[in-house]
């Protein structure tokens, strides 16, 4: 192996090492059985959850997500989905840290409006700074703006996660040029969070050199989520292998794969 070939090193986020580069969400599944089966089929080790008010006065035997996706088996990545201000996002992260016994890895997202779920980068930057100073390891959802991505890295976020397209839209990578600039500049892992619709989207992100992808709707809203979870695993693995292997150059003209020499009509 020559020295300038790309070497596979596992995904490392704030000192935590993960064998899988696929992160999956736990929203939108039919029930916790389906969640558990899809999460398992994806091969993921890093699973996002949301933090919400507990239902009061309801069935005390209500099933718990963390039984379906146990902390003994998966690293839990609590998100701040639904927060529109830095203040609410910081509060949510602190609640998550308490909920998970001091676990300090969080997925920060501060949204701009509920129509686009586009990140409010001003509030995101504020929240990121507060959280990093408070000792959180912050994986941050953001726009595909390379300047903002670099600023989040400078603040001390341990991973930057630009959207491929709008959350839950399944439109894939709408701005690969911008993503390529972010990847070129990055010194922390870059993961595509949001917009992946199908395994080819995930493979493309990985081929481009993303450290990972975070997928929820594309698995949960597939007709067969467990099968799609497996498909996403294969796509992420394939994309990663392709990134390491480095693709052939594109050519303007054809280049035969079979030699000209020895043709019977020569």
């Amino acid at each position: 192996m020559s020295a300038d070939q790309r070497q596979d090193i596992p995904l490392t986020v704030a000192g935590r090492v993960f064998a899988s580069r696929l992160l999956v969400g736990t929203g939108k599944y039919r029930d916790f059985d389906e969640t558990a089966a899809a999460v398992e089929a994806s091969g993921t080790e890093l699973v996002t959850v949301a933090v919400r008010r507990t239902n009061l006065g309801q069935n005390p035997d209500e099933p718990n997500l963390l039984d379906a996706v146990p902390t003994s088996r998966y690293t839990i990545l609590p998100n701040t989905a639904g927060c529109y201000t830095a203040k609410d996002a910081v509060r949510t992260c602190k609640l998550a840290r308490e909920l998970l016994d001091g676990h300090n890895l969080v997925k920060l997202e501060v949204l701009g409006d509920d129509g686009t779920l586009y990140p409010n980068v001003v509030e995101t930057l504020k929240a990121a700074e507060t959280l990093v100073n408070d000792g959180f390891d912050v994986m941050v959802y953001t726009s595909d703006d390379p300047i903002v991505a670099k600023e989040l890295e400078r603040i001390g976020c341990c991973a930057v996660m630009p959207l491929g397209s709008l959350i839950g839209s399944g439109h894939g990578l709408l701005n690969p040029t911008s993503l390529a600039i972010i990847l070129d500049n990055a010194e922390v892992p870059i993961l595509v969070d949001a917009g992946i619709g199908t395994p080819s989207d995930a493979a493309l992100a990985m081929e481009m050199g993303c450290a990972g992808v975070l997928i929820n709707s594309a698995i949960a809203h597939a007709r067969q989520p467990v099968r799609m979870a497996h498909a996403m695993k294969l796509a992420v693995d394939a994309g990663r292998e392709a990134y390491l292997a480095e693709r052939m150059p594109r050519r303007a003209s054809a280049s035969p794969s079979s030699p000209f020499a020895g043709r019977i009509n020569a």
């Binding site: 969400g25 736990t26 929203g27 939108k28 599944y29 969640t35 996002t48 959850v49 949301a50 933090v51 919400r52 008010r53 507990t54 009061l56 718990n64 997500l65 963390l66 839990i76 609590p78 998100n79 989905a81 602190k94 609640l95 998550a96 840290r97 308490e98 909920l99 998970l100 959350i167 839950g168 975070l214 929820n216 709707s217």
Partner: peptide
């Protein structure tokens, strides 16, 4: 303000307190 689990037994509520009790649910 978070009230750590270790302090639940010793923390007495006062009139007008705003209490939030949260748990983990499915999310992306």
């Amino acid at each position: 303000e978070i009230v750590p689990r270790s302090q639940h037994a010793d923390t007495r509520l006062s009139p007008g307190d705003r209490v939030e009790i949260v748990h983990a649910i499915g999310g992306g």
